[in-house]
Nucleic acid binder design. Structure first.
Length: 276
DNA sequence: AACGATCCCTGTTGGC
DNA sequence: TGCCAACAGGGATCGT
């Protein structure tokens, strides 16, 4: 599933092709992809003939600045990926949004389950969107452990749920939340407010190490609807996961058995022997 | 305000 | 072997 490392890997892969290029055509094959656009008819109109100035990211949101002050937002959802190919390449199934650049390259958003979306926001619309509610970016703006501890203070929800709340910290999803908690030796159901300051220090370090490590391997491609890099390669972090998807397997740290438990309607994988 | 549940969607998987 | 229900999950929304 695309989480911060996968989105950042995508950003790095598409930035050079997008920046300085002009958008010549925009095709939307599935209207559902525009459900976050206040007026869906605005999307193509605002994108066409604009030059991409820069490509950024906040949490799992990919954001490109256009020279008309529009912010082009892409969220990969759970099955979305970007394909960067010559414009005459054959269309694969579920190529829901196709952005053609004047350089002869297509930016194609392929998303079978359509949990992802695109939008072209004015500055005011961006301010009104949920993007303005995002917490600090877990990679580029990770809070210090004292601040992280403060974000969790007084909260009764499970730490796992709080790590998934993008308003608290932006970027972690189900895979990396589990990986982070395993590295920090914290059980996922613990109330956020019960996380001690020393644990918050471990948690901060775990977030940084997990994300840095995953980024080095190009993210995680799971076996089903594999996330792929824009050039079609797989992300190889899947072989290095310590908790996620490892139900019944040995904990690589203590030799205990990883279990699967549903927390907040989401699968959580963790080691009861070394995560307290 | 905080918390928890539900919904959206479809390719894949597992059980019968 | 073939069919179909269950499953996966990010974020919005709603009820408590």
């Amino acid at each position: 599933m695309p989480e911060l490392p996968e989105v950042e890997t995508t950003r790095r892969s598409v930035a050079a092709a997008l920046e300085g290029s002009r958008i010549s055509q925009v095709g939307v094959a599935r209207d559902r992809m525009l459900r976050r656009q206040p007026n869906p008819a605005d999307f193509v109109r605002r994108m066409r003939n604009q030059e991409v100035v820069g490509v950024g990211r906040h949490g799992k949101f990919l954001m490109a600045n256009l020279d008309n002050d529009i912010t082009w937002v892409t969220h990969l959802g759970m099955s979305g990926r970007i394909s960067l190919v010559p414009s005459d390449a054959p269309l694969v199934a579920h190529s829901n949004v196709v952005v053609t650049l004047d350089s002869g390259i297509d930016f194609r958003f392929v998303d079978p389950r359509t949990f992802g979306f695109v939008a072209a926001y004015t500055p005011d619309e961006l301010e009104e969107s949920s993007i303005s509610q995002l917490g600090r970016d877990a990679l580029t703006d990770l809070p210090r452990s004292r601040q992280l501890h403060g974000l969790l203070a007084g909260r009764s929800a499970p730490i796992k749920a709080l790590l998934l709340d993008q308003r608290i910290l932006a970027g972690l999803g189900n895979i990396y939340a589990d990986e982070t908690l395993h590295r920090a030796k914290i059980a996922p159901h613990r109330p956020g407010g019960a996380v001690a300051s020393t644990e918050a220090t471990a948690l901060r370090r775990a977030i940084k190490e997990t994300l840095d490590h995953a980024l080095r391997y190009g993210g995680t491609s799971l076996d089903d609807l594999a996330y792929l890099l824009p050039d079609g390669r797989t992300g190889d972090y899947v072989d290095r996961l310590r908790a996620y998807g490892r139900e019944g397997e040995r904990c690589r740290r203590c030799g205990g058995t990883i279990i699967r438990e549903v927390i907040r309607q989401r699968s959580s994988f963790w080691c009861p022997q070394c995560q307290q």
